[in-house]
Design a protein around this nucleic acid. Sequence first.
DNA 1: TGATGATATATTGCGTACAATTAAATTGTG
DNA 2: CACAATTTAATTGTACGCAATATATCATCA
Lengths: 148, 148
Amino acid sequence: MNDMLKLRNQLCFPLYACAKEVVRQYMPLLEPLGLTYTQYIAMMVLWEHKSISIRDIGKLLYLDSGTLTPMLKKMEKAGLITRSRSKDDERVVIITITQKGEELHDAAGEIPLKMSQCVKIDSEEAQQLYTLLNKMIENFNTLQNEKL
Amino acid sequence: MNDMLKLRNQLCFPLYACAKEVVRQYMPLLEPLGLTYTQYIAMMVLWEHKSISIRDIGKLLYLDSGTLTPMLKKMEKAGLITRSRSKDDERVVIITITQKGEELHDAAGEIPLKMSQCVKIDSEEAQQLYTLLNKMIENFNTLQNEKL
DNA sequence: TGATGATATATTGCGTACAATTAAATTGTG
DNA sequence: CACAATTTAATTGTACGCAATATATCATCA
């Protein structure tokens, strides 16, 4: 029996399970804002950048057009953003946050604190985790670039 | 501007992004076996337990019947498992691994090593990550039980 | 300039995920 | 023992997530 093929010896499984659970914990906090987790992180990009191409949102969130296009159309319908083609390059779609989208920022203010209370690890552990995860992501980015 | 609402200050986002990326890295390794990642972790449970209820698979994988029922039906169609009602309790569906399912175990033997090479973190870091993630999962389990 | 390749988004198809609901079987209780 | 409460799967509906493909636009250069 190959012990590496047991669930409890897998590193990737807790990563997968933990990520799912965190998203689940966000749901009741985001429900009053009418956002899903993916929409929430998209709003986070827009609260910071105000106006940004779908391509750049995808690079920041590691999501492709197959995920973003339908989601952003829903968010447009909800009045949080507008979509328009760039004049410089007609291929590019620019997403711009609306007043209504900006207003969600205040309503979201308490969410990071509530989540950190829910994820009961101390700040040193959180820092460790952050560092390790970003190291892995960096490595995946490098692998990706090597392939091109 | 609430800095906690910036992507780069979020702990949950690297967790979410990293988990997705890991699943993506698994895909080419699992493709020759005809498995998805979720099917792969289900097979891991079955390689170890041989025969187990859907309920217990769900507890081990943190998945509900809405996910498992259709997936296990596909795996039955693929000949990897059989499905049968328990004689003791007709509500319970028992999943049993088939010979064909057992044979996949050998073919999967190289996958953990290949993945560990792909995720280039050293064994001490891996241990840290494993510990932190399991601590978070434990905490979520506790929260869950408190609610009942 | 016109063919060719690259880029950005959209679309399609498939496979999860999960909440909410339904249906059947079992358990607990008066 | 009857019946309400619980448990287990299945079903339904919504929302990702990604590979593969299609389409339109842009860049390059012979």
